[in-house]
Computed example of a mutant assay.
Amino acid sequence: MRYWILVALFYVLFALAMHFAAPQMYGTIPYYIGLGVCSLIALIITWNDPPALLDEIIFFAFKWGALVGGMAFSVWGIGYKLEFWGNSESDAVFSRAFDTIMPNLAILTGLMILFGAYIWYPRK
């Protein structure tokens, strides 16, 4: 729990510093890198802390959320490829890039998430 409190406090301090020092940097890549550095600093500070109940709940949600997300992404991609939903113009001569790339990417990404969860989570 202490990690999330530190992350929130560092984000607020970073946002205040950016607001006064460089307001034009909001939404840029260096701004998001700075937020990532704030998260890493909080991680280093709380490296050896014992996990609390909220941390266990969040890890449980991430673990099973990744499995459910991978499965849903794969099912969406397979359903889109089989035209259960999506392309309603079956006689169209042209197709958008979304219609050809996204279902394949969804199937591949979903299967990779499921395979990674199958390999990683039983070890925890």
Rank of each mutant, 00 (worst) to 15 (best):
Met1Asn: 03
Arg2Trp: 00
Tyr3Met: 06
Trp4Phe: 14
Leu6Gln: 08
Leu6Arg: 12
Val7Ile: 11
Val7Cys: 06
Val7Glu: 00
Ala8Cys: 03
Phe10His: 05
Val12Ser: 07
Leu13Thr: 06
Phe14Ser: 11
Leu16Ile: 15
Leu16Phe: 15
Leu16Thr: 12
Ala17Pro: 01
Phe20Pro: 11
Phe20His: 14
Pro23Gly: 02
Pro23Met: 01
Pro23Ile: 00
Pro23Asn: 01
Gln24His: 02
Gln24Asp: 07
Met25Arg: 08
Gly27Glu: 03
Pro30Arg: 12
Pro30Leu: 06
Tyr32Met: 13
Tyr32Ile: 02
Tyr32Pro: 02
Ile33Cys: 14
Ile33Trp: 08
Ile33Glu: 13
Gly34Pro: 02
Gly34Ala: 11
Leu35Gly: 12
Cys38Trp: 00
Leu40Trp: 13
Leu40Gln: 13
Ile41Ser: 14
Leu43Ile: 07
Ile44Cys: 09
Ile44His: 09
Thr46Met: 07
Thr46Ser: 06
Trp47Gly: 03
Asn48Pro: 00
Asn48His: 04
Asn48Ile: 02
Asp49Trp: 03
Asp49Ile: 01
Asp49Met: 03
Pro50Lys: 14
Pro51Ser: 08
Asp55Trp: 07
Glu56Ala: 03
Ile57Asn: 08
Ile58Ala: 08
Ile58Met: 09
Trp64Asp: 08
Gly65Ala: 05
Gly65Thr: 08
Ala66Thr: 13
Ala66Glu: 06
Leu67Gln: 13
Val68Thr: 14
Gly70Asn: 05
Met71Val: 04
Ala72Pro: 06
Ser74Arg: 09
Ser74His: 12
Val75Met: 11
Val75Ser: 05
Trp76Pro: 00
Gly77Phe: 04
Gly77Gln: 05
Gly77Leu: 04
Gly79Lys: 06
Glu83Ala: 14
Gly86Lys: 11
Ser88His: 09
Ser88Gln: 11
Glu89Asn: 15
Ser90Gly: 14
Ser90Cys: 11
Ala97Pro: 03
Phe98Thr: 15
Thr100Pro: 00
Ile101Met: 06
Ile101Glu: 10
Ala106Arg: 07
Ala106Asp: 07
Thr109Val: 14
Thr109Phe: 15
Thr109Gly: 14
Gly110Phe: 07
Leu111Gln: 09
Met112Asn: 03
Ile113Leu: 15
Leu114Glu: 06
Leu114Met: 15
Phe115Asn: 01
Gly116Trp: 04
Gly116Glu: 09
Tyr118His: 06
Tyr118Met: 13
Ile119Met: 12
Ile119Asn: 07
Ile119Gly: 05
Tyr121Leu: 04
Pro122Met: 06
Arg123His: 05
Arg123Phe: 01
Arg123Ser: 03
Lys124Val: 09
